[in-house]
């Protein structure tokens, strides 16, 4: 019951992100979607992940998004105008998006076929990691490599942003 509420919120939010004309509303819809996801994490008995999802995505990253959208004062998107100035974009977007959607559907189908029965096999393979201490231990031992690679990626992104933002010397 709660699952459908949260999943519905997440999906509805995601749909609104794409369909809203005003970018500020898109950002807000994405925040709503994150809240839905966070509710799903609570249902999966991972309150830590749920709260962290809100702090990092809904709280920190989306504030920056909102900040940027407001500062740049992005105009409302007008489809007809867009089509006239960029005639190639829409057909290309449809093809790429359609390909990705097909890929996603195939993967989902494969995952469902493999697990045979919803929510059965996956949970048993990985015992629930709910306590924060246990999560930290797993993160810094079993998933050490992935963790470090992620942090390097973030540093690369940060350095790149600084270099892009820096004024040219000459």
């Amino acid at each position: 019951m709660l699952f459908y509420l949260f999943a519905g919120t997440a999906v509805l939010g995601a749909l609104l992100v794409v369909t809203q004309k005003n970018p500020v509303y898109s950002v807000l819809a994405l925040i709503g979607s994150f809240f839905g996801l966070s509710g799903l994490y609570v249902l999966l008995e991972a309150p830590f992940v749920a709260v962290v999802q809100i702090i990092i995505y809904a709280g920190a990253i989306m504030v920056l998004f909102l900040f940027t959208v407001m500062l740049l004062n992005v105009p409302r998107e007008d489809a007809a105008e867009w089509d006239r100035t960029h005639p190639l974009y829409r057909p290309m977007a449809v093809r790429i998006g359609g390909g990705l959607a097909l890929l996603l559907a195939l993967e989902l189908g494969w995952a469902l076929w493999r697990t045979a029965g919803l929510g059965g096999g996956v949970a048993d393979e990985h015992p629930a990691v709910s306590s924060v201490a246990e999560l930290g231990r797993v993160l810094f031992t079993d998933y050490m490599f992935a963790f470090e690679v992620t942090s390097i990626l973030i540093i690369v992104a940060m350095v790149g942003a600084v270099i892009l933002a820096k004024k040219r010397e000459e």
Partner: peptide, 12 residues
């Protein structure tokens, strides 16, 4: 963390 999250939502 819940308090922290709520305060970070207050910015909006």
């Amino acid at each position: 963390l819940v308090i922290f999250a709520a305060s970070s939502m207050g910015v909006y």
